Simulated assay, not measured.
Amino acid sequence: MTMPEISTRGWYKSSYSAQANDCVETGLVVSSGMAVRDSKDPGGPALVFPADAWTAFVIAIKTGELPNA
């Protein structure tokens, strides 16, 4: 199975991750939304979320609806 190419405006790790390699990276998808991938496998698969779903997720984290463990 071939993975489709994800066109992002760059990949970013949290500043809290320092130089650790066991974290996730996010990338703003050119066509709208957010992609998330494992930083240890930059050529591997990524999850893509629609913009409204990603916004709801971020708001839920910020408001404490989801724990940020």
Rank of each mutant, 00 (worst) to 15 (best):
D22F: 03
E25Y: 04
S32D: 08
A69D: 06
F57A: 08
S32C: 01
L66F: 12
Y16W: 11
G33Q: 07
P67K: 08
M34I: 15
T26A: 14
Y12E: 10
W11E: 03
G33I: 07
V24C: 11
G33F: 00
K13A: 12
E25Q: 15
Y16F: 15
P42M: 09
D38Q: 11
S15Q: 10
Y16G: 11
A53E: 09
P67E: 04
M34N: 06
E65G: 14
E65W: 01
A60G: 13
P42I: 12
T8G: 06
G33D: 09
Y12L: 10
V24S: 08
K62M: 05
G10M: 09
G27Y: 00
A53P: 02
A18F: 03
N21I: 11
D52C: 05
K40W: 08
V24D: 04
V58E: 00
A18G: 15
A46V: 03
D52R: 14
I6D: 00
A18K: 14
Q19C: 09
W54G: 05
A46Y: 01
V36A: 03
M34F: 00
C23R: 10
D41V: 14
P67V: 11
G10C: 10
R37E: 05
A56V: 04
C23D: 06
D52L: 09
D22P: 07
I59D: 12
V48M: 00
E25N: 08
M3A: 13
K13N: 08
P67I: 02
A69V: 12
A18S: 15
S7A: 14
P45H: 05
T2C: 00
T55V: 07
T8D: 01
A20N: 15
S17A: 13
A60R: 12
W11N: 04
G64A: 09
V24F: 02
V58P: 05
P50Y: 00
A20V: 03
Y12D: 03
S15G: 13
G64P: 11
L28C: 04
P4T: 12
V58H: 02
L66R: 14
G10S: 06
P50C: 00
C23W: 03
V24E: 03
V48C: 07
A56M: 03
E65R: 15
R9D: 10
T55I: 08
S14K: 04
V24N: 04
S7M: 02
I6V: 15
M34V: 15
R9K: 13
A60M: 06
S14N: 06
S17P: 06
A51E: 12
D41M: 14
E5F: 10
L47H: 05
V58I: 15
N68L: 09
A46G: 04
V29L: 01
